[in-house]
Design a protein around this nucleic acid. Sequence first.
DNA 1: TAAGGGGACG
DNA 2: CAGACGTCCCCTTAG
Length: 881
Amino acid sequence: MTKEKKLLLMDGHSLAFRAFYGLASQIGNMKNREGLHTNALYGFHNMVEAKIKEIQPSHALVAFDAGKTTFRNEFFEDYKGGRDTMPAELSEQMPYFRELLEGLGISYYELENYEADDIIGTLAKEAEEQGFETIIMTGDRDLAQLVGEHTQVDFTKKGGFDAITPEYLEESYGLSPEQVPDYLGLKGDPSDNIPGVKGIGEKRAQSLLDQFGSLDVLYERLDELKPSKMKENLIEQEETARLSRKLATIDRTSPIQVSIDDLEYPGKDLEKLVSFYKEMDFDSHLLNLNLSGLDIEEEEEVPYQWVTDISEDMLKNQQAVYGEMLADNYHRAAIECVAWGDSEQVYVTSIDIARESETFKAWAEDDSIEKYSFDAKAAIVSFLRRGIVLNNVSFDIHLASYLLSASDHSDSVADVANGHNYRGIAMDELIYGKGKKTAVPEPVEKMHQHVASKVKAIYELTAQLNKELIENGQEDLLKSIELPLAKVLAKMEVRGITVDAAQLEELQTQFQKILDHLEQEIHEKAGEEFNVNSPKQLGVILFEKMGYPVIRKTKTGYSTAQDVLDKLQRQAPIVDDILKYRQISKIQSTYVTGLLAEIAEDGRIHTRFLQTVARTGRLSSVAPNLQNIPIRTEEGRQIRKAFTANHEGWKIFASDYSQIELRVMAHISRDEHMTAAFKAGEDIHSATAARIFDLEDTDSVTPNMRRDAKTINFGIIYGMSDYGLSESLGITRKAAQEFIDIYFERYPGIKNYMDDIKREAKDKGYVETLFHRRRYLPDINARNFNQRTFAERTAINTPIQGSAADIIKMAMIEMETHLKKEGLQAEMLLQVHDELIFEVPSDEITQLNALVKDVMENIVDLDVPLEIESHYGDNWYDTED
DNA sequence: TAAGGGGACG
DNA sequence: CAGACGTCCCCTTAG
């Protein structure tokens, strides 16, 4: 049997554009070592590779537009006029597409005077005649006119492709393929500067074609239309309409010099592809090839010495130190080997030799000896758990690269190195494998070699990144905040928090009964058994079987999210049960079962606070996340009863900042009215309500007014639009806009801040917090509305959320210092963004209460006071004043 | 194994 | 057109 005849045709420029904008946020960090941007090449490569894998074509071609002008310009000069020129970051990538395609083994073609569309249209026609199945990949909607029984057009969309078939076209637009040019002729196409008929958009074009079938028939029978403005336009602009159609019609008989036989797809040319990947620094692709058997490994061979006896002359001031672990949870992971050194010399040993060496331990602990690291906290924790105290870690290339750009998610030495033009470190996956197959390599020297190269890289990158930090004015942020914090967090993590398993198990039984009952109830009301946890099955039950109105769709089906179900609550008695089931089921799986599984042998939970994840500078918490323990519902809040103090007679003590983000905003914006309200000690939401509702004083503020003011205050911090506010207040968009206008009028300083910070982001390309934490916003000047407005909201929010994060981080460092200095036994356990949680002996409560207030409220001097509230109790649930 | 939906927190 | 910032985790489903 002959191979299936399948032709894949791709629209080169259109896909390149999509790839470029799809990865627009990566522009900043996707460059090869020569500084060439690579995001479009990367995205295009992935798109094409995925499609090839999916459809397994026998023939393939990428068509490109040849030049600026085509035959269409001969009869319409302005065709594609007014188009923005291609961004420089993209045009510099264009010459390399050919190289990439040669590596992928795909033919490419362009034809003077014609567009890629015409090449594709002509070949698709030929293919149809020869009995091929054709798939066309493009981002350009015009190509819909090519669909047919054996020709499918796949349009790019977020995260994949939409397959357009004649049936789809009929269903979604009510059009046949032949009607597409007529449709575009009527409504026009702004992206190609095709004018169309004035006043006719999508809807009218559709209904006209529905009625008359084609543009020609429409003009023959124009008198059937009732007199209207639209009819006048049609008459007046007949010539434009016909011209527009002509422009939108793909030429399926273009004089191409290739035929389908030339397009046979032979598969990848690995040699060419590898050299392309190397040129572009596509390390992950290289890695994939390697795992499938190709040897391209090129790690620099750093000389190292394996030691079994550690002597003093090996240990100096200002060396890099690193413990290798193959799993990310350093509380549990084994340390496979320990290494230290500098550019000249690297030593490698085992963790057992290191921990038994008094010489090594003394060096590690010596506060006058500086050590450089990758991930200081991981090193401190993993060493501490083995009796080695690691002091004076004076640099951390992981933290440094995060501070230089908070969006940089490098989380290995190789990543940081690659991101800073330092080559020669193999990716860990290459040495250790990935997923289930992760293991120490044979022979073990391969690992020692790898770790030695990391140590050298840490040492050398320390100098380089330190320089970059100084240039950015961020040296202090590392030295005075992040590095000291790493040590504080390390202690908190190792300490852990005591969780009462028996208590959780009791909850588990209770919740299970409720869940069983609710499930039964739901099945009864639905009239059949199904998995309530499956949004897909639930959607079918609610919207097909039971026929309730569809409120919103997701990309895969019906949305059954909470706010959707809320809207059905009145008419659908089943949704109460579903909502309750969801709520309890969440608590049961994530917080009861989930937390039980995380309790260590010491009866405590040891989370990890991630210091380099959140792009605003906040911490995050994983394995488990202890920053989202339920509090908003009573059932959920019960979980907190299981978090207790470790000793009899001790208490859990919690202090939280009141409105720290709004206070920070008042300070940054210098808005006089908001500042005054905080200074006067007013309830800020009431003060806002009084201001925007024109009240004499806060006494006449009703609870509803306060609630609305609170919504607006929060919305402002997030850069909310009129639409967003109207949704959350349940008012019209117009009313919401009026609210916002009044708000800005009454708080002009805040309005100025919003404008200034956006301006600044556009000029500099980044925003900063009060303490110089930096976040780049590559999309701030994007042409795409969503990307740009998202970047603008981020510009507004990041300095606020990020400065608040800076402040509590400083307070944590200070608290740890003071607890020690004042000889308190109390210990800090957790941070939840604006809140610190301690355990404390009862007789220290008064002292702790005073200390925490002093530290947290005075850690920085803003234009407004900082205030905290503190509570304590036997567990995290019972924290009364 | 990865992606999407959904939901917990500040 | 979509549509309030920042996280992490569980479950189901598709590959």
